[in-house]
Simulated scan of single mutants.
Amino acid sequence: MELEGKLIIITGVSKGIGLATAQTLLENGAVVAGWGRNKPQFEHPNFHFFQTNVQSQESVENAFQETTARLGSEIAGLINNAGFGIAGKFEEQKVEDWQAMFRTNVDGIFFCTRLVLPGMKKQGYGHIINISSIAGTTGIEEMSGYCATKHAVRGISQSLYKEVRNYGVKVTCIYPGSVQTNFFDNIDSVTANENMMQPSDIASTILHVLQSPPNYHHVDIEVRPLMPKGRQKQ
């Protein structure tokens, strides 16, 4: 897809992968509607911020209405990036933490995607990109809640692409390994470090996927740091 002038919505745009992706797409000519709880310290004439809490259906619907009223209804892409994880032993996981992860990581995708799909199907093109995690392909000790949400993202993506592919709409699920972001602020067992992938690395993958030819469809993409513990010495 040619990105010049195309409208792309990005959730979780305040920092990390979302902000890096917004910057990358803007550099390539896109118009970005950034949905997030906090406005990033970033300015660009084609960047438009809409305060949004993806846990709330009402908040998402308001953001959608404001976005289309200001920027038009022809939405070329939606990047469902908002998400977080809280570690804990299964029997010790707080119910409110479990529910909050599902509301953001799973319900948020449902609330956002259901609004853009009718227009994409009508216009005959569009791209939904869901950011899962390698936690969506395996189990991780003391991360059962987060893994459950990211497995759900995988299931949504796998089902949805089969529903909409014949309308010309793509659905891609990306499974990153460790990325140096604030995600690990709530994970005591892991400290973010420079050997992890960078948010800009994931943004480059998203750019590549969006720019692919119309009849070429990336369904699942797993990405990991090559040397997560640094270069091994001989």
Rank of each mutant, 00 (worst) to 15 (best):
H127W: 01
R154A: 11
P40C: 09
T149D: 05
Q41L: 14
V209Y: 00
N28G: 02
L226K: 12
L3K: 01
S178F: 06
F90G: 10
T149W: 08
P199C: 09
L207A: 03
E61P: 02
A22P: 01
F47Q: 04
G88S: 10
V209F: 01
F111A: 02
K233Y: 11
S14V: 03
I134E: 12
Q99N: 15
V153P: 06
F110A: 09
M143I: 04
T104H: 09
E66W: 01
T67D: 05
G36N: 06
N38G: 09
L160H: 11
K150H: 11
S14H: 08
F64K: 01
G36Q: 06
K15Q: 15
V223H: 02
Q51A: 12
A148M: 12
W35S: 01
V169G: 08
T11G: 03
N195H: 14
F111L: 11
T21H: 03
N28Q: 10
T205P: 00
N105D: 12
S157A: 13
N46F: 09
N182C: 03
S56R: 09
I174D: 00
G83C: 11
L71Q: 07
T181W: 09
G136H: 04
F102T: 03
Q180G: 04
T67H: 03
S73I: 03
K94W: 07
K233M: 13
G18T: 05
I75L: 06
F110K: 09
W35I: 03
I79S: 04
P213H: 03
F111W: 15
Q158Y: 12
L26M: 08
Q158A: 13
H208V: 01
K15M: 11
N195Y: 14
I75A: 07
N105A: 03
T11Y: 08
P213L: 05
K15S: 15
F50L: 12
